[in-house]
Nucleic acid binder design. Sequence first.
DNA 1: CTGTGGTCCTGTATGC
DNA 2: TGCATACAGGACCACA
Length: 286
Amino acid sequence: MPELPEVEVVRAGLESTITARTITATRVLHPRPVRSHPAGADGFTAETTGRTFTTPRRRGKYLWLPFDDGDAMLAHLGMSGQFRINAPDDPLPRNTRVTFDLSDGAQVRFVDQRMFGGLSLSPGGAELPSEISHIAPDPFEPVFDPAATGARLRRSNSGIKRLLLDQRIVSGFGNIYVDETLWRARVHYDQPGARLTRPRVLELLEHGHQVMAEALAVGGTSFDALYVNVNGESGYFERGLQAYGREGLPCLRCGSPIVREPFMNRSSYRCPTCQRRPRQRPAGRG
DNA sequence: CTGTGGTCCTGTATGC
DNA sequence: TGCATACAGGACCACA
């Protein structure tokens, strides 16, 4: 499940392989990943062929690959999207959706089993695609403002996990790193943002930055073949996870078995001792 | 404005 | 052996 660290690993891999290369041929093998491109698969093919990449950029979980003419290709990996760099005659993975032949002879492949991800062309989007203007800066960006983000979190009575997953408030967090962040900060996922003190919320954001930095340093988190880097290699942060996926295993701080609970149609992992349920209901009525 | 729940997708694991 | 179901979950959208 690519979140910020995994997307950054992919971005860095693309930077060293596509920068200053020109697309000589685009092939759309499945229309769904280019669904948000207005002109459809044929239009996407026509409008990307002949373009030259500059340095790939990222905000949160979004990637964009600027072209030297000021436009950009916007990409999201969704649940299972991958960019792979190969020789054109290497075997094509089963779920290859789009391929780009490059001027140096390499081939970029967009592989996506579940197809929650997507590619589109963003006119004028080289600096920051307008399509993602609603996405907040992530904790790795120089413009990220912890005080402002903390204030925003503290203005809401929603549960803190829901807030951290809201990419309009802060971007980059997904289910894994939110659970890790909350475990480190000893905060329950239903704790209303408004019930956290200013120091606590800043501490929480620092933990979030820290855990994602640690994951990035070891190539991200790979549970299965769904997340790999551009060379098909897995990351090693799975062994660094302290909460996510550890149902029934002892909390590494206090020994209590980690519990898994349904949350927003997915799973949430927490220590029942270190991360106690808040007394008041979030956004309670009465 | 806020909060909630449905939808899109496929592959793997599990249950009967 | 086969068929049904649950699960993984990021982003978006309809709706109350």
